[in-house]
Design a protein around this nucleic acid. Structure first.
Lengths: 207, 207
DNA sequence: GTTTCGGCTGAACGACCGTTCGAAATCCAT
DNA sequence: ATGGATTTCGAACGGTCGTTCAGCCGAAAC
């Protein structure tokens, strides 16, 4: 990664940092660790980034923006609330699974940011939560009263999705597609008792 | 907390540490912070604890043991799988809500332990997961085929329950009891399509 | 061939970290 | 009052941390 233009070197640095942060944790990782990992000098890192915290912020902010952008695109033209929810879950999990280190850092290192950095990421989180809750509201209009409080349901869904960084291996037996199907069924069935066609019940999907 | 016997002082120390770890994070908290918090000297802490990591381990291990003990007691005499699952969820959430700092530390600082400490806690986690999956297996026997992979369902449930440290306020509007009901309905409805009596649908439980 | 400049470096700064240790303080049985 | 055990303490240890800064390097511009 020696003679890449400036922006691409920053991208590579962020990717490396995300991997190390995800594996060892943000606070346990030193700038010296990152220098070793990226093959540059310690002080060289500061040419691309103002501080360690900005590094963490860039990882969180860029990836969050990417999730939301991907979601907006995926939702385009989708009007059925059930399909909207499916799309939301699928988009979230597919992005998560294909950006595991970054999304783990985003989910797990929420405490590590401070001040304006924290405020900015939290604003994004609120927007994203709002998007989900709007879908849930429309879902209730078309599919009848919900079986659970909307706010609890929203956070429960985020919980089951974000928790995957503790157990899910994107390269393992369980395909992301199946993971999405499973969680969609779990949530839809519980929230509005959405009927599941018997033919759409491939149990024993994976170990 | 000056003239308490040895064991009770250790308990108080663990409680204080759990609060600070939960609020600031394990690695961001220094032994000097804990000394200030507990009103003792820095070196005085080492009379009660061999190291900072042992402090973290004791918090995690003791509370995990307490959850499991409470669960075993609650499950005594309960034979219906649906009631067993309700009991599991209720026990987990009630203990979580009444030991928020400790359970946040247990859920969030899994990476911070190393070596034997880590292995011991992980063993406990496997046992606990096994207990849930056994209940799910019995549930499928009595209530028909599940709508989702059992392993995915188990981790999804842990996800929605453990995630509450990111948003739930035990002192807020939403009672733990209602939280449990909501999550039980969400999961049961999604996993086995467990019917929910219309009379048991108190929507708009809380904000 | 000299200047310019973005990219990078080694060395050092002060601050803070977890832990140790010998001694001081406190307690309690005698 | 006294002796020994328990509890607490101040001071210091070696080490690591994030960050800074003056200067070096190689290539493009003149």
């Amino acid at each position: 990664m020696s003679q890449l233009p400036h922006d691409q070197k920053l991208d590579a640095l962020l990717a490396s940092a995300a991997r190390v942060f995800a594996a060892r944790g943000y606070h346990e990782t030193s700038m010296r660790d990152l220098a070793t990992e990226t093959g540059t000098s310690l002080s060289g890192l500061y040419y691309y980034v103002k501080s360690k915290e900005e590094l963490l912020f860039l990882i969180q902010d860029r990836n969050f923006a990417a999730v939301v952008a991907s979601l907006r695109e995926a939702l385009e033209g989708v009007t059925d609330p059930v399909r909207q929810l499916e799309t939301f879950i699928e988009n979230h999990l597919e992005f998560f699974a294909s950006h595991m280190p970054e999304m783990k850092v985003l989910s797990h290192e929420a405490l590590a940011l401070t001040g304006d950095f924290l405020a900015l990421v939290n604003t994004r989180k609120h927007e994203y939560t709002r998007m989900l809750m709007d879908i849930l509201a429309r879902l209730e209009e078309t599919n009848g009263p919900a079986h659970a409080n909307r706010r609890v349901a929203a956070y429960a869904l985020f919980g089951m999705m974000n928790w995957i960084y503790n157990w899910y291996d994107p390269l393992g037996d369980l395909d992301v597609r199946l993971l999405s199907q499973n969680m969609t069924r779990l949530f839809l069935g519980g929230y509005v008792g959405h009927p599941v066609a018997a033919s759409a019940l491939p149990h024993r999907t994976a170990g």
